[in-house]
């Protein structure tokens, strides 16, 4: 099914409590993947899918950005970081 994917992240400079908690848990639990890895921060955003039953046009992508910025995200504390499509 054709879809547009809108990715929203907390603004880079703002605190992300959920990401911070996950980061702390990674360290505390000593997860094997993180022990030797170079992970320095975890940030958690959201992925929103907009489904279509037809081909996605450039206008759809532009509309999706507009919806993403005005409706799906809170511009005061979040940024739309990526708009992409899958057919």
């Amino acid at each position: 099914m054709p879809k547009i994917i809108v990715e929203v992240m907390p603004k880079e400079v703002l605190l992300d409590p959920a990401g911070k908690s996950v980061m702390n848990a990674l360290h505390r639990k000593g997860h094997s993947a993180s022990k030797k890895s170079d992970i320095t921060a975890v940030r958690i955003g959201k992925r929103i899918e907009l489904h279509f039953d037809r081909e996605i046009t450039d206008k759809d992508l532009a509309d999706a950005r507009e919806i993403g910025e005005s409706f799906l995200s809170n511009g005061v504390i979040e940024d739309v970081v990526k708009i992409s499509s899958e057919n």
Binding site: P10, K11, V13, L14, L15, D16, P17, K20, S21, V76, I77
Partner: peptide, 15 residues
Amino acid sequence: GPAKRPAVQVGDPFA
């Protein structure tokens, strides 16, 4: 550089 820093703060009650 960043044009504008945010005027808001984000709280973490568990912290």
